[in-house]
Design a protein around this nucleic acid. Structure first.
Length: 479
RNA sequence: GGCGCGGUGGUAGAGUGGUGAUACACCGGAUUGCAAAUCCGUUUACAGCGGUUCGAUUCCGCUCCGCGCCUCCA
């Protein structure tokens, strides 16, 4: 199956051809760990998690690398502001980040390098750039990339330097030879973290060099896919390309740096651009208090990754309703029963095909609904939990649905857990619910429907919905 | 000023040169003691104006409107 992806550098949808037939290297720009991630940060995490899952079904070997930026002036400022050690801030933030990723059902990447663990590689890269005449060191310890030394600068981001000088807000540091030159290394003063280096006593890297160093360390100077948010196209990715291409003579690599570039679109919040001054962005953590992570994940996947997405709690509520329907179709079988179907890619499953077309996740989700519809139309439309009367074809269909959804990271929970777990703080326990159901059963048996309805209404007021099934069995779920 | 993206039914959101994706909501029906869940059905679409075409929401041009980037940012 051909995988088509939209490549930012070519501005077109193209057929993906890995450097080596059976191996794919994927690098995604990860978080700067100074605070908990917000829902906008979650979009690339989820989108490129789906990409990594798809790649793994299409190729035998996939190496997924996502960095952690733990050197940054925002980190320094935040630590100072909170009066804590920088290391303490980054460690706790990384831990929280991992929790958020897990809640969003994002699988861990193969490598999660940290900037602080890649300093020697960065220094080596900068030295190469100086040697090759693409960077210059100043007396105060700054090292800058010499933009005019590379003719192709600006090509990737489609920025013509001459045409954008007017009107652009460019603050030019006086130490720059050219306004576009950017920092590779800078000196650190007393309480700012720094490392020994050839240019000053203590210094730290600039923003862009870390990704050049970390991607090369794990994937080599020429790899397949580099991914990130659209806002990183310029300057971050343009500068990465400049650094990596200039540091290596063309003979070092088969091509130049990443062969394909994928960028996810912006995320808005409740109709407005997210901004800290408006305070209108949600952290993943606060959303998780209100919605399961799977709901957030579905909201993010219901819009194509390159389109702008207006995130809202209304969309979360809608996604919750959709997941309820999908899980409802899987009901009646345990997670492990449903897990026995191995997805056969060659079979050309609709979901795989949709994803292979530049990650068309909305279309993929629609196929999930089609599968669920087929199951619900099946011979035993209504059957109680635990009755194994549902025929095997139906079970097989459910397995296909679950296997299909796996690539999207959805529907992997036990259906009963989806409906029953996650009790709200004040909700009744399962045992209490069962007692009420038993009482209602007796009321129904004696035709006391008023009492039966009263019990049901009371439970509903506590967020528990009862569903009467054939055979006098009553099923329940939390709203 | 430069570069780029988009305008689809109540809402969200795919897609296609010619049979109404899909979801949520609404309404009607089936089922149910009544519900819930599920199924069936109805109803609203492709910003405007031209062009190409047997035929355009889909291709081309223009107009209008919205949005993003141009060295903090996923």
């Amino acid at each position: 199956m051909d995988l088509k992806i939209y490549d930012t550098s070519r501005r077109a949808k193209v057929i993906f051809e890995p450097r080596e037939a059976d191996k794919v290297g994927l690098y995604a720009c990860g978080p700067t760990v100074y605070d908990r991630i917000h829902i906008g940060n979650a979009r690339p995490l989820v989108v490129f998690d789906v990409l990594s899952r798809l790649l793994r079904t299409l190729y035998p070997t996939v190496t997924y690398v996502r960095n952690i930026t733990d050197i940054d002036d925002k980190i320094n400022a935040r630590a100072k502001e909170r009066g804590i050690d920088i290391r303490e801030l980054t460690e706790t933030t990384v831990a929280r980040f991992r929790e958020d990723c897990e809640a969003l059902n994002c699988l861990p990447p193969d490598h999660e390098p940290r900037a602080t663990e890649t300093i020697p590689e960065m220094i080596a890269l900068i030295e190469r750039l100086i040697d090759q005449g693409h960077a210059y060191a100043l007396d105060d310890g700054h090292v800058l990339f010499d933009v005019p030394s590379w003719d192709d600068y600006g090509k990737f981001a489609n920025k013509d330097r001459d045409e954008q000088i007017s009107g652009a807000r460019v603050e030019v540091a006086s130490y720059k030879r050219d306004p576009a030159d950017f920092v590779l290394w800078k000196p650190s003063d007393g309480d700012t973290p720094g490392w020994p280096n050839p240019w000053c006593d203590k210094g730290r890297p600039g923003w862009h060099i870390e990704c050049s160093a970390m991607s090369e360390k794990f994937l080599g100077p020429d790899f397949d896919i580099h991914a990130g948010g659209i806002d990183l196209v310029f300057p971050h990715h343009q500068n990465e390309i400049a650094q990596s291409c200039c540091a290596h003579a063309p003979t070092d690599r088969q091509d130049r740096f990443a062969r394909y570039w994928m960028h996810n679109g912006y995320l808005m919040s409740e109709g407005e651009k997210m901004s800290k001054s408006l305070g209108n962005f949600y952290t993943v953590a606060e959303l998780l208090e209100e919605f399961p992570g799977e709901v957030l994940r579905l909201v993010l996947l219901k819009t194509h990754y390159r389109s702008p997405l207006d995130f809202s709690k209304d969309k979360c509520r809608e996604a919750k309703a959709e997941l309820d329907t999908l899980y409802q179709s899987l009901r009646g079988h345990s997670a492990s029963d449903l897990d026995q179907f191995e997805l056969i890619v060659e079979g050309g499953l609709a979901v795989t095909k949709a994803l292979a077309d530049d990650l068309n996740t909305p279309s993929a989700v629609s196929h999930l609904h089609a599968l669920a519809k087929g199951i619900n139309r099946g011979p035993s439309q209504i059957y109680p939990v635990g009755s194994v009367s549902a025929n095997t074809d139906l079970l097989e269909q459910k397995r296909i649905l679950k296997a299909s959804a796996k690539m999207l990271g959805l529907l992997q929970k036990d259906p009963e857990d989806w409906f029953k777990a996650g009790a709200p703080t004040n909700g009744p326990t399962e045992a209490e619910i069962e007692i009420q159901i038993e009482a209602r059963k007796e009321a129904k048996a004696s035709k006391d429907f008023a009492k039966a309805d009263q019990i049901r209404d009371d439970l509903q007021a506590q967020g528990v919905i009862l569903e009467d099934k054939p055979g006098g069995i009553t099923e329940w779920r939390r709203a």
